[in-house]
Design a protein around this nucleic acid. Structure first.
Lengths: 282, 282
DNA sequence: AGGAAAAGTGAAACTTTATTTCATAATTTG
DNA sequence: CAAATTATGAAATAAAGTTTCACTTTTCCT
């Protein structure tokens, strides 16, 4: 198990001084693996035995052993962890933290996805007469992106980030139409209403949202994209990035399902963009 | 670099005794990371100073530092790798591949970023009279997202995904304006022109693109977001996701730079959305 | 509130571990 | 084959980590 995560989890079982140690470690783990116990104690403004006790509480044999675990956690290939941005972080620090949290959230999102539901969604999408993507705020760009992607497939696709257009479109939907409603919180009133309207009008409603939200209840298929709670003011919404990855998955599933002839077509679309670009001389 | 590989490479530059050390380490590295220098010396049937010299020859500071490197090399379990989607992949398989590739690309992108340039960009952004984001196609949604984010900061911000609007806006820019041009390929002709126009009109032009592209040459600051080449037809453009993460970084840098009063304001914006949502009952 | 018990903490003593020094042994070179 | 170079380990030294124990703070109970 990743020791940084473990520290984060056990933060509240630690004593006051031990928490100071934890904070120093979490804020710059890469420095710590090169520090002696004395240096760390000094930085955390506590004594050396406290550091030692801290290490043992995390089920390591002592400080050197702890450093070993820490080093391994920091090495490549270990799972990424949600780390909060701190007011005094340098550019390097907050950059790392944001990228790592984003990756951690992608990992979480992947775990929450159910491949059977993805399969069913792809089924539905390949058979749709018309596909509409709805989102508001940060999720609007996901809908926008989805439109870009599906547009290339030469299927009737629209996206709206305007409540009224969404409502009108939902009301005009019919059997065979697919409406994809995107909302991280799943609590945005107007979007929940739109989902419900589309459903009443016999469209298949796919929700890209968090498990168990009001929106989820209105959908025919719910693709759960769970990411860690957005409690931190500085922490950006990683949810939209996970949602985009899911759009990639759906689009890929769509392409695969449609077979090889369809893929030749895709290639043509790609090639058609070439003349608008400067050549690559390499 | 992986230290086990390094040991193997340098085997013939080592002395006889040192080679004994190397062999012991290579044969059971997992034991070594929990051994003291004395234990290792005994096992290799040589003296402690020899072990120490061995460590230094591998460019580590000493035995403990060597163990740290060794531990990290051993931790490399399954780094995220770009894996290509195959025609016969199941939903589960392509989902995993897409998420993992996305993470691999985020990792790559992070490595290509220069924190000094991020710092300078944040400087420029906090002092801007007006901020414009330009992108086309997949990058348009990044520009769109950036507008969403910076709009919350109550600064004059616009985004255009229309070539004509971009040109007009670029021509009307002036000293103190910041123009952020987003393009993965950095070869889209009209965008390169827009960057050049903006520059001629004294705007500070920040490019979010790949290193060494025509667009990069036109920019005052280039934030390189390098991801692996998009050679595969099935593989979705991960570049936009890396770009979004970079937008998060810039927005976070902006927030931090602006100080605590500014952050209170942000909280208000966040709260103002509450009434549009269903309550959370938990 | 008041005081006993429990938990937390750090100074100092102590132990373990790593590094340096230096004399000697092995190897290379002319 | 002897001088020079390089390699090696015993012992001394230095550094790092751990334990003990007395003192402080907190918690819990009446």
């Amino acid at each position: 198990m990743n020791i940084l995560e473990k520290i984060t989890n056990e933060l509240d079982t630690l004593s006051k001084s031990e928490r100071k140690v934890a904070e120093v470690i979490l804020s710059s783990p890469n420095t710590v693996i090169h520090s002696s116990i004395a240096a760390l104690a000094k930085q955390a403004k506590i004594s050396e035995p406290t550091v030692n006790r801290f290490c043992r509480r995390l089920d390591t044999k002592g400080y050197p052993d702890f450093k070993l675990h820490l080093a391994q956690s920091l090495a490549n290939g270990t799972p990424y962890v949600n780390r909060h941005v701190d007011e005094n972080d340098s550019a390097e620090e907050y950059t790392s933290k944001i990228f790592e949290s984003t990756m951690a959230n992608l990992e979480l999102a992947r775990k929450s996805l159910d491949s059977n539901l993805i399969n069913r969604s792809v089924d539905v999408l390949t058979q749709a007469n018309k596909i509409s993507f709805f989102g508001l705020g940060a999720s609007a760009i996901v809908a926008h992106d989805a439109q870009n992607k599906f547009f290339r497939f030469n299927v009737p696709v629209v996206y709206f980030d305007d409540i009224l257009m969404q409502r009108m479109s939902a009301i005009n939907s019919r059997q065979g139409d697919v409406v994809i409603v995107i909302s991280h919180t799943g609590r945005t009133k107007s979007l929940v209403e739109v989902a419900s309207l589309a459903k009443e009008n016999d469209a298949t409603v796919i929700g890209i949202t968090t498990t168990g939200t009001p929106l989820a209840k209105e959908c025919s298929i719910v693709l759960s994209v769970n990411v860690s709670e957005d409690t931190d003011l500085y922490m950006p919404m990683s949810s939209r990035i996970a949602q985009l990855a899911l759009i990639d998955v759906l689009a890929t599933g769509f392409t695969l399902r449609r077979g090889s002839k369809f893929r030749d077509n895709l290639k043509k679309v790609k090639d058609s963009l070439r003349s608008s670009r400067f050549d690559k001389k390499d």
